[in-house]
Write a protein that binds this DNA or RNA. Sequence first.
RNA 1: GGCGCCGUAGCCAAGCUGGUAAGGCAGAGGACUGCAAAUCCUCGAUCCCCGGUUCGAGUCCGGGCGGCGCCUCCA
Length: 477
Amino acid sequence: MALKLRNTMSRSMETFEPLEPGRVLVYGCGPTVYDHAHIGNFRAFLFYDLVHRYLEWSGYEVRFVVNLTDVDDRTIRGAVAEGVGIAEHTGRFAELFLADSGALGIRPVDAYPRATEYVDRMVEFITRLLDSGHAYVAEDGAVYYSIARFAEYGRLKGIDLSTLRAGARVAQDEYEKEDARDFALWKAATDEDERAGAAWDAPWGRGRPGWHLECSVMSTTELADTIDLHLGGEDLVFPHHENEIAQSEAATGEPFVHYWLHVKHLLVDGRKMSKSLGNFFTVRELVDQGFDPASIRHQLISAQYRKELNFTLEGLEASKNAIQRLVDFESRLDALSTDAEAARTDLPTLADDLLEEFRVAMDDDFNSADALAALFTFVNRVNGALDGRPTVRAGDRDAALGALGSVDAVLGLLEVARASRAIGDELAAHVEERIRARAEAKRQRDFAAADAIRDELAEQGIVLEDGPDGTRWKVVR
RNA sequence: GGCGCCGUAGCCAAGCUGGUAAGGCAGAGGACUGCAAAUCCUCGAUCCCCGGUUCGAGUCCGGGCGGCGCCUCCA
């Protein structure tokens, strides 16, 4: 069995074969750090995380790079509006992005290169394209890539260049281009650029790099001329990735990327997310409203990455409950007492089944929805096997916990849920004290008092569970 | 206009190379409990419509209807 991927380039499923056995190079187009990233962005980044974790889970050594776009129209505009330099402006949002990523359990990748740190290399890159005749300096001081010089242009998107309506969308200030469809590698500096500190010297004139260029340069610099996977949102297929291919392959003479994977855009309340529709959410807002990051993570991976996913508060509520079921399940396993003499159970078999079903699901182009189904099927089966059986063999319990942990090393749900449920020692001690008081009340059959304590703790998000061997408690959110 | 996706139970969502349908949430009944919580058991689908291929189609083909996305330096 092997991992199969839907390659945008071939428009079909392909069996994944790394360039180098056991090793995978991945590049994911990151956020433009001009504002808070929203949950739509995070659907994509959570998918990156799934790819990252699953490749490692599958035994690959992975080098994963996600760029931070810190120089473009929006970051410059933002910096000028704030009256600060571009670095200060974008630095703040880069931090917020990493913080939100961390909250959602997105594992840090190997490098987060920022465009502004690669300007020298971008200049070199452009020089190569100029030398080979793939680019030209226009009268306005900009450097454009000449797509007429790249025969394969349009292949990723599957467009026939001759059908492109030349000139249909040409801005008036772009009359310097030889061909309307040529794109900028370098833009001449404007006053605004200078004010934001977003202008650099280059042999052909002062200016700043074009957007598409950074990914080509950072990918080839941080990874290699040819990499295995390149990820991005569906909007990036054209022209961004198309342009990256053209630039990179013209500059290096090597294939740029083996597999292109694109994430479908998230819908919110059945519509494209937009501020004007009022369906615009950031992770921070949702967390401030009391939603568990684990719930957000669950909701955003509940559909396979190429499928339509409609984010709603109702759905988030459902995810919250699903997460709680997982948390309760793990607690139940943890609390199991063990005895070498206990009867054998199906847990080892069920654990093997889970790992197998999980692998099959993820191997099928990262079908996280199916992977979640495998996990919950496991929960059901194990709960059933454990019914009325508080004691099992240590090996059985460990097999179940091991499989659960293994799967969660990819899904990251329990990992995040645990973090958001952690409470301080002081509160924990208080809870224990109240539970003792309640036990005493129960002993005296003063159920009103016992229930009052239970209600009081519930107010604080602490739920009590009475069992044969005493009262257990858990944090609910 | 170009490219593409989707339409499966109240909601979300799997279903590979065709053989009468995973999982989550919500809901109903029951068991357990002082009451709860957790858990278990039981209960739910004309798979958008119409044709076609086939012994047999959610699953393939054709045609409709409906929804959505990208094509704009938006993941």
